[in-house]
């Protein structure tokens, strides 16, 4: 009986091993694709941030002002948090949600905070913690498409223009290596020079210390500034989402790998136990036979 039990356990663990292995392989393939997308868009995004920085310097010295660069008195803050739809991805969700929750508590001192949760895990987390969500976005995978991100960004910019919110933050995870991803926050609006600097340093490891040139704008400066900023931020947000998705898969891959290693270890232990039990049983049987034989003599 004991033998059978152990055997069942071995089978079970081996099944889990197979499952995690399959999941790891799937994640690895997905990760490879997403990392490629994310890494390929990095040079563009670096330029985007550099241009935004030069624009923010430019509009500081010129007469043309764009609302996107001006901080206003804060009444309402919008926070977007991006987590995953599915579980089994290690600390990925916990890291980003912890950071977001901590900072939301800080932000609440400044003004009213509204949250848009992207991904099932984020939605569940904030609901459980008792937050009122302004919006739940559950088709997180759809955001690999640029059109979807454009719609979202346009909406954010419209809300900001209508003065619905005075500050917009976006929380997501940045991918560095399969072993290392960092949760971070992007200040979507208003754009501040020091934030742009920080972003540039973080994702590209470079610092720009150039003076803004005196730009010519075609057609008009006002038109360009408004349209350009939203267009450039679309790139930035799209990129951030790609990075986050890549991080999710990387995190899942590592979690599955750990699970696989654990399962392997357990199987090894169980097999040893199985042999011991079998040996014990045989010894007992032999012992029985010999004693029976002795008795019949």
């Amino acid at each position: 009986m004991r033998l059978l039990e152990i055997k069942n356990k071995i089978n079970l663990t081996q099944n889990i091993y197979g499952l995690t292995q399959a999941l790891e392989l799937i994640s690895a393939v997905r990760m490879k694709r997403l990392v490629k997308l994310a890494v390929n868009s990095r040079p563009l995004v670096q330029k985007v941030i550099a241009i935004l920085k030069r624009l923010s310097q430019y509009q500081k010295i010129s007469k043309i002002k764009s609302i996107y660069f001006q901080s206003k008195r804060i009444k309402k803050i919008l926070v977007l948090v991006l987590a995953s739809d599915r579980g089994f991805c290690g600390f990925y969700n916990r890291n980003i949600l912890k950071l977001a929750e901590k900072e939301i508590k800080e932000l609440e001192k400044e003004g009213k905070v509204e949250i848009i949760a992207i991904g099932k895990k984020a939605v569940n987390f904030f609901k459980k913690a008792g937050y009122q969500l302004k919006e739940e976005i559950l088709d997180q995978k759809e955001y690999q498409k640029f059109e979807k991100v454009r719609d979202l960004t346009e909406r954010l910019f419209q809300d900001y223009q209508k003065n619905e919110y005075q500050k917009i933050y976006f929380y997501c995870t940045h991918y560095f290596t399969p072993f290392y991803q960092l949760p971070r926050k992007i200040q979507v609006l208003p754009l501040e020079e020091k934030n742009l600097d920080e972003m540039l340093k973080k994702i590209a490891g470079i610092t720009l210390i150039e003076k803004s040139p005196d730009y010519i704008f075609e057609p008009s400066a006002k038109e360009i500034l408004d349209k350009l900023v939203s267009e450039l931020m679309e790139f930035e947000i799209y990129h951030a989402i790609l990075e986050a998705l890549a991080s999710e898969e990387a995190s899942r891959m590592m979690a599955m790998k750990r699970a696989m290693d654990n399962a392997k270890e357990i199987v090894k232990d169980l097999i040893l136990k199985y042999h011991k039990a079998r040996q014990f049983q045989i010894t007992a049987e032999v012992c029985e036979i010999t004693t029976a034989k002795e008795a019949t003599k």
């Binding site: 241009i51 040139p213 005196d214 730009y215 010519i216 704008f217 075609e218 360009i224 349209k227 350009l228």
Partner: peptide, 15 residues
Amino acid sequence: GRLTILAHHTPLITF
């Protein structure tokens, strides 16, 4: 309209 840019062009932003 179409633009041709040579070296040392003045700073410019356009779509």
